[in-house]
């Protein structure tokens, strides 16, 4: 329950400062609406996780995610958006006509309209030992941590494009890469599968899932279970890279929002949620394709819908 007095009122508050949230901010600011963008992490969201973006229309070739984020942020600020970054959202009340957002247990902001663009987070395996060895054997970023595993044997978990492409990229460093996937087929493109299968350093364990990450002081291996036979086995390894998709950041949102069975927010074509005056944009929304371009499109639509809502 948010009790504090309101620090400042806005026309629209955007929760999230990734490409969806920043694009919404650009459109809202241009429409002269008083807009606040609140971001719990770094500006840019998952976009900053990309070293080089080759497929963003019109952008210079291989612009970094960081630079594209900073350009979008500058544009949003130029149009008058206020930004609160690296804050903790400690309260959200969407029930009344006036929506309330509390940050850092301290300041409370109000708005008639909210756009939720809180994005996603790399999905953890959720098994024993994973958290213990995060940063000391378990990684979610091949480009960041690959060189720590030079001449070592590693496991890559996942069967999509990211997993297979990163498995190939990790062969630059590791002496052996074992891809572990829970199904009997991959979800990647034929090209990505072919490139991985043709790499001598990569082997595959299909229809298996990691049950536990093993090791006392250092990571030594994993316990695997075959999904078909339920047979368990131990595979020794020096490190594990996890690429099994993303989870929508909806855990701290009010229960009154309707989510699907993957905890993504359901919305109509106008990005409207089941709560009047609350719109959604980007990876947190129920949708099939998650790209910077689709986040930008969502942000645009959500902003235009919010503008129309306020005009009515």
């Amino acid at each position: 329950m948010i009790n504090s007095t309101i620090t400042e009122s806005f026309d629209v508050i955007v929760l999230g400062g990734g490409p969806a949230g920043l694009t919404a901010g650009i459109y809202l600011g241009r429409a002269k609406l008083k807009t606040l963008i609140i971001n719990e992490g770094s500006i840019g969201g998952q976009m900053v996780l990309t070293h080089a973006i080759a497929n963003y229309p019109g952008a210079k070739v291989d612009i970094s995610g960081r630079d594209l984020s900073l350009d979008m942020k500058a544009q949003a600020k130029e149009f008058g958006c206020k930004l609160e970054s690296n804050v903790e959202v400690t309260g959200i009340d969407l029930d009344g006509e006036l929506k309330l957002i509390e940050i850092d247990d301290d300041e409370v902001f109000s708005a008639k309209t909210i756009i939720i663009a809180t994005g996603g987070t790399p999905r953890p395996m959720g098994v024993n030992g994973e958290t213990k060895f995060k940063g000391s054997g378990v990684s979610y970023c091949a480009t960041c941590d690959g060189d720590f595993f030079t001449d070592k044997e590693i496991i890559v978990v996942g069967g999509g494009n990211s997993a297979l492409e990163e498995a190939v990229s990790l062969t630059q460093f590791a002496s052996k890469v074992t891809v572990i996937h829970q199904f009997d087929h991959f979800q990647a493109t034929e090209h990505a599968i072919k490139v991985a299968q043709e790499n001598d350093k990569i082997s595959f364990i299909m229809e298996s899932e990691i049950q536990e990450v093993l090791g006392d002081q250092i990571l030594t291996g994993v316990e695997l279970m075959n999904m078909k036979t339920e047979e368990r086995s131990i595979v020794s390894t020096d490190g594990i890279f996890v690429f099994i998709g993303y989870i929508a950041n909806t855990a701290s949102l009010p229960k009154s929002l309707i989510l699907n069975n993957r905890n993504e927010i359901k919305a109509d074509e106008a990005m409207a949620t089941n709560i009047e005056g609350v719109f959604v944009a980007g990876d947190v929304r129920e949708k099939r394709y998650r790209q910077i371009t689709t986040a930008v499109a969502d942000g645009t639509i959500a902003a235009l819908s919010a503008i129309a809502f306020l005009q009515n």
Binding site: S42, I43, H51, R66, N86, V87, T143, C144, D145
Partner: peptide
């Protein structure tokens, strides 16, 4: 660190604190 995706958020957090 480096100018990598796991490092940048930590620099930003430090700047904010």
């Amino acid at each position: 660190g480096r100018m990598g995706p796991m490092c940048l958020p930590v620099y930003d957090i430090m700047e904010g604190l």
